[in-house]
């Protein structure tokens, strides 16, 4: 595992030949997928950012989406969360009750409101001038809006709305306590340290009660201690709330420790999909990250002290 952490190099040259090969056939995948991405293609003009990517996210799993810079990970995320409309392909989300949503057809905000997919952003997007508590209350817009009868009951201060608001605040307070920010709950979110902002953004996404939580590089810019805290938080989200997690991450100490399954993209194409152990020893992944010819992979493995399978 440690060796792969060392391979976290990003700007290295990669194999050109990999583009031309068809994606390797992956056996099965998770038995009960919450999200099925089917032949997803996203083109921007002449550029194919994502080409025919298919993968599944298991219910109750933490699935990591990794790959070198520019591999199309964030594009896949934006397609799943409704910010891009994919050029081709289908993204199917099946909730526990059996309701199925085709995410690529929903308008942007309905991906969260109806399909209950929440996300965070690579560059944190909090509401910086609003307080920590307010940030979380904004995330509970849907239930509060219903309780306030589109503001009418709220303006009149009817008891039904007050009760809903109290519940929302209690729920927010619980999340604030979970991320350890109770003492700063009334401060503007923009004043928090970077690591706290990251965790607040995750808590805010969780306040929308998602079935699938998509995290775009949650460990970026965190120190090792904060990364460890993040691991704990993500496990808590999976185990206690039963929320499935899909995350993009470069920090291999996070990816390898908490992922149940890893999907690897390179040049917009899926090159591997499997358990952390399988990915760690996958020659294509090593090649993609290190940038060597297939013939040299064995030599490189030896060099980094990896004794797995060879090409």
């Amino acid at each position: 595992m440690m060796q792969v952490t060392g391979l976290h190099a990003t700007g290295l040259a990669r194999l050109a030949t990999l583009q031309d090969e068809p994606p390797a056939a992956m056996p099965g995948g998770p038995a009960d997928p919450i999200l099925v991405v089917d032949h997803l293609t996203m083109r921007f003009g002449g550029l194919t950012a994502v080409g025919d990517v298919s993968f599944k996210v298991g219910r109750g799993d933490i699935t990591a989406l990794i790959g070198p810079n520019g591999a199309g990970k964030t594009t896949v995320f934006n397609c799943i969360t409704g910010f891009y409309k994919p050029t081709e392909g289908m993204i199917r989300l099946r909730q526990e009750g059996g309701e199925t949503y085709l995410l690529e057809r929903l308008p942007g905000h309905d991906v969260n409101r109806l399909a209950r997919v929440a996300r965070t952003f690579q560059n944190i997007r909090l509401f910086p001038q609003m307080t920590v508590l307010e940030n979380l209350l904004v995330a509970m817009h849907k239930p509060l809006m219903r309780a306030s009868a589109f503001s009418l009951a709220g303006i009149l201060g009817l008891p039904g709305y007050r009760r809903a608001q109290e519940e929302a605040i209690a729920k927010a307070a619980a999340w604030i306590a979970r991320i350890g920010l109770t003492h700063r709950a009334d401060e503007p979110a923009g004043d928090l340290p970077y690591g706290d902002q990251r965790r607040l953004e995750i808590a805010r996404a969780m306040c929308t009660e998602p079935v699938l939580l998509c995290l775009d590089e949650p460990a970026a810019g965190l120190n090792p201690r904060e990364s460890a805290d993040l691991n704990t938080l993500l496990r808590l989200i999976r185990d206690e709330f039963g929320t499935s997690v899909l995350l993009i991450e470069h920090d291999m100490s996070v990816v390898m420790q908490i992922s149940d399954r890893i999907v690897v993209l390179d040049y917009g194409i899926k090159i591997a999909d499997g358990t952390p152990d399988a990915i760690r020893n996958d020659t294509r992944v090593i090649a993609a990250y290190l940038g060597v010819d297939d013939e040299e992979v064995a030599a490189v493995e030896a060099e980094v002290g990896l004794t797995g399978t060879s090409a």
Binding site: T81, F83, H109, N112, R119, M130, V138, R204
Partner: peptide, 17 residues
């Protein structure tokens, strides 16, 4: 609150439904 959130970050608003 949604108005104020909209002023702060429209994209984040959309991601919160």
């Amino acid at each position: 609150r949604a108005w104020e959130a909209l002023r702060e970050d429209e994209i984040a608003c959309r991601s919160l439904g």
